[in-house]
Protein backbone atom coordinates (compact mmCIF):
# COMPACT_ATOMS: atom_id res chain seq x y z
CA UNK A 1 0.00 0.00 0.00
CA UNK A 2 1.62 3.14 -1.23
CA UNK A 3 1.27 6.60 0.20
CA UNK A 4 -0.52 9.50 -1.37
CA UNK A 5 1.78 11.74 -3.29
CA UNK A 6 3.19 14.43 -1.02
CA UNK A 7 1.44 17.76 -1.54
CA UNK A 8 4.43 19.98 -2.17
CA UNK A 9 2.28 23.13 -2.19
CA UNK A 10 1.98 22.70 1.58
CA UNK A 11 5.66 21.96 2.13
CA UNK A 12 8.65 24.27 2.08
CA UNK A 13 10.87 24.25 -0.99
CA UNK A 14 14.51 23.37 -0.46
CA UNK A 15 15.78 26.73 -1.69
CA UNK A 16 14.35 29.53 0.44
CA UNK A 17 16.65 32.60 0.50
CA UNK A 18 14.85 34.18 3.50
CA UNK A 19 16.36 31.31 5.49
CA UNK A 20 19.93 31.90 4.45
CA UNK A 21 21.44 28.56 5.38
CA UNK A 22 19.11 26.84 2.92
CA UNK A 23 20.79 28.52 -0.05
CA UNK A 24 23.91 26.33 -0.14
CA UNK A 25 22.20 23.26 1.28
CA UNK A 26 19.34 22.82 -1.19
CA UNK A 27 19.42 20.69 -4.34
CA UNK A 28 19.25 22.57 -7.63
CA UNK A 29 18.01 19.59 -9.62
CA UNK A 30 14.43 18.44 -9.35
CA UNK A 31 13.62 15.60 -7.03
CA UNK A 32 13.01 12.42 -9.00
CA UNK A 33 9.51 11.14 -8.28
CA UNK A 34 9.35 7.47 -7.37
CA UNK A 35 6.30 5.29 -7.12
CA UNK A 36 6.34 3.47 -3.82
CA UNK A 37 8.18 0.18 -3.59
CA UNK A 38 8.81 -1.92 -0.51
CA UNK A 39 11.74 0.37 0.27
CA UNK A 40 9.42 3.34 0.77
CA UNK A 41 6.26 1.79 2.20
CA UNK A 42 8.05 -0.06 4.99
CA UNK A 43 9.91 1.53 7.88
CA UNK A 44 11.42 0.82 11.26
CA UNK A 45 9.30 -0.41 14.15
CA UNK A 46 10.05 0.56 17.75
CA UNK A 47 8.91 -0.99 21.01
CA UNK A 48 7.94 0.35 24.41
CA UNK A 49 10.79 -1.71 25.87
CA UNK A 50 13.24 0.66 24.20
CA UNK A 51 11.90 3.64 26.15
CA UNK A 52 12.51 4.49 29.78
CA UNK A 53 9.72 5.41 32.23
CA UNK A 54 10.75 9.10 32.30
CA UNK A 55 11.39 9.48 28.59
CA UNK A 56 8.22 11.54 28.16
CA UNK A 57 8.73 13.66 31.28
CA UNK A 58 11.23 16.42 30.55
CA UNK A 59 10.59 17.93 33.97
CA UNK A 60 12.06 14.82 35.58
CA UNK A 61 14.23 13.05 33.05
CA UNK A 62 17.33 15.15 33.68
CA UNK A 63 16.53 16.62 37.10
CA UNK A 64 19.58 16.59 39.38
CA UNK A 65 18.61 18.57 42.47
CA UNK A 66 15.17 19.99 41.72
CA UNK A 67 12.78 20.85 38.95
CA UNK A 68 13.83 22.87 35.91
CA UNK A 69 12.97 26.57 35.84
CA UNK A 70 10.02 27.56 33.67
CA UNK A 71 6.32 27.26 32.96
CA UNK A 72 5.18 23.70 33.49
CA UNK A 73 3.35 22.45 30.41
CA UNK A 74 1.86 19.29 28.98
CA UNK A 75 1.97 18.80 25.22
CA UNK A 76 -0.40 16.19 23.89
CA UNK A 77 -2.19 15.23 20.73
CA UNK A 78 -2.58 12.58 18.12
CA UNK A 79 -0.57 11.38 15.18
CA UNK A 80 -3.03 10.90 12.33
CA UNK A 81 -2.74 10.27 8.64
CA UNK A 82 -4.38 12.09 5.75
CA UNK A 83 -7.24 9.57 5.89
CA UNK A 84 -7.93 10.77 9.45
CA UNK A 85 -6.86 7.43 10.83
CA UNK A 86 -4.67 7.22 13.93
CA UNK A 87 -1.05 6.16 13.51
CA UNK A 88 -0.53 3.76 16.45
CA UNK A 89 2.72 2.58 18.03
CA UNK A 90 4.86 5.12 16.25
CA UNK A 91 7.89 6.83 17.73
CA UNK A 92 7.59 10.56 18.43
CA UNK A 93 10.75 12.35 19.59
CA UNK A 94 10.97 15.95 20.77
CA UNK A 95 13.68 18.40 21.78
CA UNK A 96 13.80 22.01 22.79
CA UNK A 97 15.63 24.89 24.45
CA UNK A 98 15.18 25.62 28.15
CA UNK A 99 13.05 28.44 29.56
CA UNK A 100 15.82 30.94 28.82
CA UNK A 101 16.16 29.89 25.19
CA UNK A 102 19.38 27.92 25.68
CA UNK A 103 19.97 24.40 24.37
CA UNK A 104 21.96 21.78 26.20
CA UNK A 105 24.31 21.34 23.26
CA UNK A 106 28.03 21.76 22.97
CA UNK A 107 27.61 24.06 19.96
CA UNK A 108 25.09 26.44 21.56
CA UNK A 109 26.91 29.46 22.97
CA UNK A 110 23.95 31.77 23.64
CA UNK A 111 24.50 33.71 26.86
CA UNK A 112 21.32 32.52 28.55
CA UNK A 113 22.32 29.91 31.15
CA UNK A 114 22.09 26.15 30.95
CA UNK A 115 19.53 24.81 33.42
CA UNK A 116 21.24 22.11 35.48
CA UNK A 117 17.95 20.25 35.84
CA UNK A 118 16.87 20.28 32.23
CA UNK A 119 18.08 18.06 29.41
CA UNK A 120 15.58 19.15 26.79
CA UNK A 121 14.68 15.96 24.99
CA UNK A 122 12.23 13.11 25.26
CA UNK A 123 10.25 10.56 23.31
CA UNK A 124 7.05 8.57 23.36
CA UNK A 125 5.25 5.89 21.42
CA UNK A 126 1.72 6.68 20.32
CA UNK A 127 -0.97 4.40 21.73
CA UNK A 128 -3.54 2.48 19.70
CA UNK A 129 -5.44 5.72 19.05
CA UNK A 130 -2.36 7.55 17.84
CA UNK A 131 -2.26 9.52 21.08
CA UNK A 132 0.95 10.80 22.68
CA UNK A 133 1.73 13.15 25.55
CA UNK A 134 4.67 14.54 27.42
CA UNK A 135 5.43 17.00 30.17
CA UNK A 136 8.03 19.71 29.94
CA UNK A 137 8.67 23.40 30.57
CA UNK A 138 7.84 26.01 27.98
CA UNK A 139 10.94 26.85 25.93
CA UNK A 140 12.07 30.44 25.55
CA UNK A 141 12.69 32.34 22.32
CA UNK A 142 16.30 32.95 21.33
CA UNK A 143 18.34 34.92 18.81
CA UNK A 144 19.98 33.28 15.82
CA UNK A 145 22.19 34.38 12.98
CA UNK A 146 20.08 34.95 9.91
CA UNK A 147 19.54 38.67 9.89
CA UNK A 148 21.45 40.36 12.71
CA UNK A 149 18.29 40.67 14.76
CA UNK A 150 16.48 37.39 14.06
CA UNK A 151 14.68 35.64 16.91
CA UNK A 152 13.14 32.22 16.91
CA UNK A 153 9.66 32.01 18.37
CA UNK A 154 9.38 29.53 21.23
CA UNK A 155 9.18 26.09 19.67
CA UNK A 156 9.54 22.38 20.25
CA UNK A 157 11.12 20.19 17.57
CA UNK A 158 9.28 16.99 16.66
CA UNK A 159 10.47 13.91 14.83
CA UNK A 160 7.86 11.35 13.75
CA UNK A 161 8.23 8.04 11.94
CA UNK A 162 4.85 6.70 10.88
CA UNK A 163 4.71 3.16 9.55
CA UNK A 164 6.67 3.69 6.32
CA UNK A 165 9.91 5.49 5.60
CA UNK A 166 8.07 7.77 3.16
CA UNK A 167 6.14 9.23 6.12
CA UNK A 168 9.27 10.30 7.98
CA UNK A 169 8.81 13.88 9.17
CA UNK A 170 10.59 16.49 11.22
CA UNK A 171 8.76 19.65 12.17
CA UNK A 172 8.44 22.29 14.86
CA UNK A 173 5.52 23.16 17.12
CA UNK A 174 4.85 26.78 17.98
CA UNK A 175 2.74 28.27 20.78
CA UNK A 176 -0.54 30.12 20.36
CA UNK A 177 -0.16 33.86 20.71
CA UNK A 178 3.61 34.09 20.19
CA UNK A 179 4.25 37.41 18.37
CA UNK A 180 7.57 36.13 16.97
CA UNK A 181 5.86 33.54 14.75
CA UNK A 182 4.92 36.09 12.13
CA UNK A 183 8.50 37.42 12.00
CA UNK A 184 10.31 34.12 11.67
CA UNK A 185 11.98 33.25 8.34
CA UNK A 186 12.05 29.55 9.22
CA UNK A 187 8.28 29.57 9.76
CA UNK A 188 7.74 31.46 6.54
CA UNK A 189 9.57 29.02 4.30
CA UNK A 190 6.19 27.27 4.41
CA UNK A 191 4.28 28.64 1.43
CA UNK A 192 0.77 28.14 2.80
CA UNK A 193 -0.74 30.20 5.62
CA UNK A 194 -3.06 27.42 6.79
CA UNK A 195 -0.15 24.99 6.87
CA UNK A 196 1.70 27.44 9.13
CA UNK A 197 -1.32 27.74 11.39
CA UNK A 198 -1.43 23.98 11.73
CA UNK A 199 2.00 24.15 13.42
CA UNK A 200 0.69 26.46 16.15
CA UNK A 201 -0.58 24.59 19.21
CA UNK A 202 -3.53 26.14 21.03
CA UNK A 203 -3.73 26.34 24.78
CA UNK A 204 -5.92 23.47 25.94
CA UNK A 205 -7.40 24.29 29.31
CA UNK A 206 -9.39 21.06 29.37
CA UNK A 207 -6.15 19.10 29.06
CA UNK A 208 -4.51 21.04 31.87
CA UNK A 209 -3.92 19.81 35.41
CA UNK A 210 -5.53 22.48 37.63
CA UNK A 211 -3.11 24.36 39.90
CA UNK A 212 -0.24 22.40 38.36
CA UNK A 213 0.42 22.27 34.62
CA UNK A 214 -1.13 23.96 31.58
CA UNK A 215 -1.63 22.01 28.35
CA UNK A 216 -1.11 22.65 24.65
CA UNK A 217 -2.62 20.38 22.03
CA UNK A 218 -0.66 19.46 18.94
CA UNK A 219 -1.87 17.00 16.33
CA UNK A 220 0.46 15.80 13.61
CA UNK A 221 -0.71 14.52 10.24
CA UNK A 222 1.39 12.10 8.22
CA UNK A 223 0.80 11.01 4.66
CA UNK A 224 -2.08 8.61 4.11
CA UNK A 225 -2.01 5.25 2.40
CA UNK A 226 -3.87 4.54 -0.79
CA UNK A 227 -6.66 2.07 -0.46
CA UNK A 228 -6.28 -1.15 -2.40
CA UNK A 229 -9.46 -0.99 -4.51
CA UNK A 230 -7.66 -1.65 -7.75
CA UNK A 231 -4.12 -2.34 -6.71
CA UNK A 232 -1.31 -2.10 -9.19
CA UNK A 233 1.43 -4.56 -8.54
CA UNK A 234 3.86 -3.31 -5.93
CA UNK A 235 5.92 -6.43 -5.91
CA UNK A 236 6.31 -9.58 -7.92
CA UNK A 237 5.19 -13.17 -7.32
Amino acid sequence: MEFYQRDRTLQPAGYTPIYKTSVARSPRQSLLSLQGSLSEITGPVFGQNELGPLDNDLIRNYAKDGDPIGERIIVHGRVLDENNRPVPDTLVEFWQANAGGRYRHKKDTYLAPIDPNFGGCGRALTDENGYYFFRTIKPGPYPWRNYVNSWRPAHIHFSVFGSGFAQRLITQMYFEGDPLIKECPIVHVIPDEDAINRLIAPIDLKGSVPLDTIAYKFDIVLRGRRSTLFENRLEGN
Binding site: L10, Q11, H105, G119, I170, Q172, D192, L199
Partner: peptide, 18 residues
Protein backbone atom coordinates in the same frame (compact mmCIF):
# COMPACT_ATOMS: atom_id res chain seq x y z
CA UNK B 1 -8.86 14.28 3.89
CA UNK B 2 -6.52 15.87 6.37
CA UNK B 3 -3.46 17.69 5.16
CA UNK B 4 0.07 16.58 5.89
CA UNK B 5 1.84 18.57 8.60
CA UNK B 6 4.45 20.91 7.13
CA UNK B 7 8.09 20.03 7.57
CA UNK B 8 10.53 22.35 9.33
CA UNK B 9 14.29 22.16 9.51
CA UNK B 10 15.82 19.86 12.11
CA UNK B 11 18.06 22.79 13.03
CA UNK B 12 21.62 22.88 14.35
CA UNK B 13 20.72 21.12 17.61
CA UNK B 14 19.01 18.06 16.18
CA UNK B 15 21.50 15.96 18.13
CA UNK B 16 19.78 16.82 21.42
CA UNK B 17 16.64 15.04 20.47
CA UNK B 18 17.88 12.22 18.28
Amino acid sequence: YLKETASQTAGPYVHIGL
